[in-house]
Design a protein around this nucleic acid. Structure first.
Lengths: 247, 247
DNA sequence: GATCTCATATTGTGATCATAAATGAGTTTC
DNA sequence: GAAACTCATTTATGATCACAATATGAGATC
């Protein structure tokens, strides 16, 4: 897809199909955030400003802003040449990342448990049911989506404007690696801890809920490290799949 | 200071005094990061793209990128109109912020204590001595500078690429409020916990070091909340002082 | 005297351009 | 045959422009 100069330059004429009124970068940002968490971009992949812009059908400007923000959130890193790419996470950084996850997400879960409502619990139950379906179908995209939705729904209930952005930053960082690891046959797919978390939330047992999340995170980390250690996680694709999933 | 069209447009001619070779935004970013931590910008202050650019003697472009990144780091917030400003922190957000600080910086200190070298300890001792001088002279800028340098030197020793950016994000968030509070006469200035931390590091006592940092953070939080609660923290300046300090 | 209205100035946003660095392919050389 | 060099393409970057939305301030009205 290419940018047609004649169309973009005189966008003031016709082209009523342009609802984007000065908030193009928001759309690009949310797309890329979701894409990072769900496997649209792979570790090591370099992001070309112009190519991405062409893909979105915009000028490079909004994409520049978005990439800047993602670099600031440590979701992307800049190369020596000024390009940005999806970071490759080594074992040390991966365990660092997950140790901080345990801390932050454990704290958020504890807070959330103290404010949990029946509505929240039924919502989480529904999400988890959809997650189980995705796991059963071995549908990576929806698996990642619903797992993310489950966790973030819990954390959202903590109602902390400070914790949430930090947690999001962490998820953006390990998202691409997580996707890669799910492609490896030996990687275990399970959401068994979610049941315990739900039970703890029903009981209003904050400590147990926290313990459940921490265990979930620790299990994921171990699985990730084992597949990252055995084989070098190097896959044949240069680009992830189309970003289409029903969440 | 204004941008002279004739000079900037044809920068390829003479003007050998332009070391900035495609890394202008880096300079702007580090300046603004430090400025936020040290009181060059005040809570509620709106940042004008063009005015800032004129102040830096550049086009608005590098400033746009920097402001974007600071928004992404939650150091600045965007208004409804698309402008960005320094956030005003309410008591709830302030205590949220400091609760997370305790967690993250406590963890970093624990890690640092396990890797502490004599060189680090003597370095910290020197910084703390300078901090005490700044406190004695009631020099706000250097007080904030050296306090920040003390803390960050500890955290840097933890050697975690994950923790450090998160902690920096937190400091950028409470920096302006911290500066404001130091202007209030009733605000206590002390670094008494730093001695305990140094002692704990010398002993290789990670738990004690962590406890020291947590106590330091908690004390700061209480002081901040008390002055924020009593008076509404509203100061006569529209802009902070010039950014000049010898750190 | 306070409020509303409207003209003006200022703002951010996206597009485009110029430039220099970096990348990569192609060729040459040892 | 492998290493190194050259050149063309692609890259990000900063500056500038056009436009729409917002904020500002003066003037008129109640």
């Amino acid at each position: 897809m290419r940018i047609d100069k004649a169309e973009t330059a005189k966008n003031g004429s016709a082209d009523a199909a342009k609802p984007a009124r000065g908030h193009v970068h928001e759309h690009v940002l949310s797309y890329m955030r979701r894409g990072l968490m769900v496997g649209a971009f792979l570790p090591g992949q370099v992001m070309s400003l112009r190519k991405l812009a062409a893909g979105f059908g915009t000028s490079p400007m909004p994409v520049r802003e978005v990439l800047s923000r993602l670099v600031a959130a440590n979701a992307l890193e800049e190369t020596k040449g000024g390009s940005v790419r999806v970071p490759r996470l080594g074992p040390e950084k991966l365990s660092d990342l997950f140790a901080v996850r345990e801390m932050l997400e454990g704290m958020a879960t504890e807070l959330a448990a103290k404010k949990a409502t029946p509505a929240l619990i039924s919502q989480l139950t529904a999400i988890n049911k959809q997650l189980l379906v995705a796991i059963d179908k071995r549908d990576i995209l929806n698996c990642l989506s619903y797992n993310q939705k489950f966790h973030f729904t819990v954390y959202e209930a903590a109602d902390s404007e400070v914790l949430m952005p930090l947690i999001e930053s962490l998820w953006l960082q390990f998202g691409p690696t997580m996707y890669m690891s799910l492609l490896i046959p030996s990687m275990p797919w399970n959401a068994s801890d979610h049941e315990d978390i739900l039970a703890a939330l029903k009981d209003g047992n904050a400590a147990a809920a926290k313990k459940g999340i921490v265990h979930d995170i620790r299990t994921t980390c171990k699985a990730l490290l084992s597949v990252a250690g055995s084989q070098g996680i190097e896959l044949p694709f240069a680009q992830g799949p189309e970003l289409q999933f029903d969440y």
